[in-house]
Structures are given as structure tokens and as C-alpha cells.
Amino acid sequence: MNVSTMTENHNKGARTRAFDQAPGNAWKAWIPALLVLFAIPLLLAGNPFYIHLAVLICLNIIFVNGLALINRTGQLSFCHAAFMGMGAYAAVICTVRFQTPFLISVSAGVAVSMLAAYLLGAVILRLQGVYFVLVTFCFGELFRLVMLEGGDITGGANGIANIPPARLFGFTFDSKLSFYVLAAACAFLSIVFLIALFKTPKGNSLDAVGDNPDLAEASGISIQGSQTFAFVLGSAFAGFSGALLAHYLGFVSPESFNQHISVAAIIMLVIGGRGSVLGPILGALIMTPLPELFRSAIETQNIMYGITLILVLKFLPMGLVGIGAKLRGKKGQP
């Protein structure tokens, strides 16, 4: 036996254990906990900076939730930011050029991301592991270049500015606090949606494909079908967060959706934890404020990121969420 198979088995063991220890009704306890968490920023309403951070955390939760969904079928997407960008650009072009209402613009953004993910997924999802990573990396770069060369439609390197704020049912979300309420509601719904999804047989089949594709296929689950489903849905999450972000910041440019954003999402996912709904939330919650709070020592902070990433991969392959399971696992085993 070589080293690689042993570590793989070990990881799989850790993964199933984490699932087993999440009892079926635990979510009943932490949905109220989440509501309390989302309410905390409302108490800090006096400080616009904290509200700004809270908005970014909410949008990142939606964004990373999408990546987590794709990852649970065993694929790591390196072009997640491209789908965020697609949603953002499509929504903004609708809003600015065609003056469509906010809701229509966002729907259009999500639809464009989903369609692109479906078309791309149909051809690239038969690639596995590193090959999938590389092809998505190239696609992300291609997307950035296309936006850069998009001329009047995308605004080239300057992007599109002066995007009007979100407007829903006659109410304009033009203050940070009002937008936070919108973003928090969306983030909360995305979490509830994922919890619900992973309670259904469809959700279980996604996990099955991620854990052991051969076994899943032998049990009659389509690998390609499950991965396409997750890729399209996960990219829709990304497009949705992009459309919201564009209307919040009032500005989009190709560099808002470059490889660094995709990598940041992967870092949040890995540090928070793959394979559970809580992981992406934890990752976004911890990793979003750090760069904003430590702007003065950006190098030191990036080095700390790198070290944390490696340490988490080494000792907590299931992410920070895995700490509890790891401790319990140690206690439970002779």
C-alpha cells in the first residue's frame, strides 16, 4: 500500500464521521442561532464600517455556499469568480442599459450564470480532479479577458460604474443598513435551502457522488447528472451574489472577478470546512473581515493566511468545523 491511498482512506473516514455526528435534527438548534448571528450587526448599526463588513460576509456566504455545493460532488471549481462576474455583469447591463427593475436584473444575472454553467459543465464535467481544476482555471482567465476586451458592452478595463442601488417593491436599498437586511435575508435563505437540499435524496446523491463516484454510479446515481446539477446550482449562487454585490458597490470591473477571488473562495471553503453546511458559513465569517481589519499589515496577514491554509489542510482536512468531530472521534475510539 502506498502513502496516497492510506491518506485518502483516512480523509474519507473523517468525512463520513463528520456526517454521522451531525444528527438529523441539529439544524433545529442552529437555525435560531443563525438568526441571532444575523441580528448582531443590527446592534452595531452606528458604525458603517461594521455594517459594510457584515454585508460582505453575507454575500460571501452565498458565494462560498455555491462553491461548497459543487465541491460536495467531488469537483473543485477554479472559475467560481467568473460565474459571480457573469451574474454581476448580466444584471448590471440589464439595469443600466435596459432600466429593468432590480428583481428582473438579478434573475437575468442568475439565469446567465446557470446557462453558462450548464453549457460549460456539459463538456468539462467528465474531467476529474486536477484536469477539472485546470480547465476551470483557464475558463476563469478567459472570462476576465473577454470582459476586458468587451468594448462598450462591458466597459473594458474601466468596468461599469454608477449602478443604481437595489430597489424592491418601491423601497430603495440605498443605505448600508438597509442593504444588510436584504443581504442577510438572502444569505439566510441560501443556507436554509442547502440544509433542506441535503435532507432530500437528491442531496444525498450529491454527497454519494463526491464520496465514492464508482459506488454511486453502481447504485444507479448518474455522476454526470449529479455534478451538472451541483455545478449549475452552485454557479447560480455565485451569479446571485455577484448581482447583489454589483448593486451594493455600484461598480463592476474585470478585476473584481479575477482568479484571486476564486482562490479566496477556495480558502474560505477549505478553512471553514468542506462537506457540511456550516463550513462555508464559518469560513466566510472568519476570512472576510480579516483582510479589511488588517489593511495596514497586508503582507504579514497574507503569510498568516498561507500558513493557516497549510496547517488546516494538514491537521484538519475537514476544516474548522471538523474540530468538534475530531475531538469526539478521538474520545470515541479506543
Binding site: N2, V3, I303, G306
Partner: peptide, 24 residues
């Protein structure tokens, strides 16, 4: 050392390594 032959985790670890080297 811990990531030999592990395609995905090893690759993510090199992202961390790149951050350390570049910012160093």
C-alpha cells in the same frame, strides 16, 4: 510531505505556499 500523491489538497497547499513566498 503530507500531501504526496494527494492531488487536490496538495494543490491547495501550494496556493498557501505561493502566498507565503510572494508576501515574504
Amino acid at each position: 510531505k503530507g500531501f504526496r500523491g494527494e492531488e487536490l489538497n496538495g494543490m491547495i497547499a501550494t496556493i498557501g505556499l505561493a502566498m507565503i513566498l510572494q508576501n515574504g
